[in-house]
């Protein structure tokens, strides 16, 4: 009746697993302490799946003997299923032992989520307009969108924007566009004498500015991961 009824399904699921954190790579020590722990509650460990965490020892020079450890765990009735936080060599050994590799580490996850996030938040952009000169020692930040300055940015002043920066006076201070990592951000100015230019973390200091573009009206943007300056 249901010829296309699926015979299987893949689904993600969050499970609670016991994790064995290894703090040292000395196999003898591990065996000794493991025996002690397990003797206290042998039933608890029976047939329990377990993940081996290698974070603390991934840089250890005296490498751990994983196959030895897996054998040991199995003799106690534990079922090792995966490792995490190991170095490439440890991962390879684990794979050969038919163990899975859990890549989940917090820092990696954060980095992955950061980039799409900045693109997403750029939509409700609010432009900030400043008419007064920005003097030495002052800092103006536009956290939501563009920053437009109708006057001069003095030496020793600093302006930062989530997206583009437009300066209709002379730009003599520091200008940082795309401060949240927006590679598309640009800086436009009528007179380029900046102490520092930065887009999405890439920067040029005054010394790096090409002589022929000094005091000219220019735009600055990112191309192939480096700042490019074009006359307007």
């Amino acid at each position: 009746m249901y010829p296309h009824k699926p015979a299987l399904e893949f689904k993600g699921n969050l499970l609670t697993l016991m994790v064995l954190h290894l703090l040292e790579s000395d196999n003898d020590k591990i065996a000794e302490q493991l025996a002690k722990k397990i003797s206290k509650a042998p039933g608890f460990f029976q047939d329990a799946p377990i993940v081996i965490d290698l974070h603390a020892i991934q840089d250890d020079e005296s490498d751990i003997d994983l196959s030895e450890l897996v054998k040991l765990l199995r003799t106690y009735g534990l079922i090792p299923v995966a490792v995490r936080g190991g170095n490439p060599q440890q991962d390879e050994t684990a794979l050969n032992l038919n163990l899975g590799i859990l890549t989940e580490t917090k820092s990696v996850r954060h980095r992955r989520y950061l980039e799409p996030e900045t693109v997403a938040t750029s939509s409700p952009s609010i432009c900030k307009i400043v008419t007064q000169p920005i003097r030495s020692g002052q800092q103006v930040v536009s956290l939501q969108g563009d920053l437009v300055v109708l006057s001069t940015i003095s030496h020793g002043a600093e302006i930062l924007a989530h997206r583009h920066i437009h300066v209709y006076g002379a730009l003599r201070g520091r200008a940082l566009a795309g401060v949240n990592g927006d590679n598309e951000a640009r800086i436009f100015c009528q007179q380029l004498d900046a102490e520092l230019l930065s887009i999405a973390g890439r920067y040029l200091v005054n010394e790096d500015l090409p002589e022929n573009l000094r005091s000219q009206s220019v735009q600055i943007y990112l191309e192939d991961d480096s700042l490019k300056i074009d006359p307007l």
Partner: peptide, 12 residues
Amino acid sequence: RDSDRIIGMLSS
């Protein structure tokens, strides 16, 4: 340069 800094402080 220092005068510029002072002018900024006068306005803030």
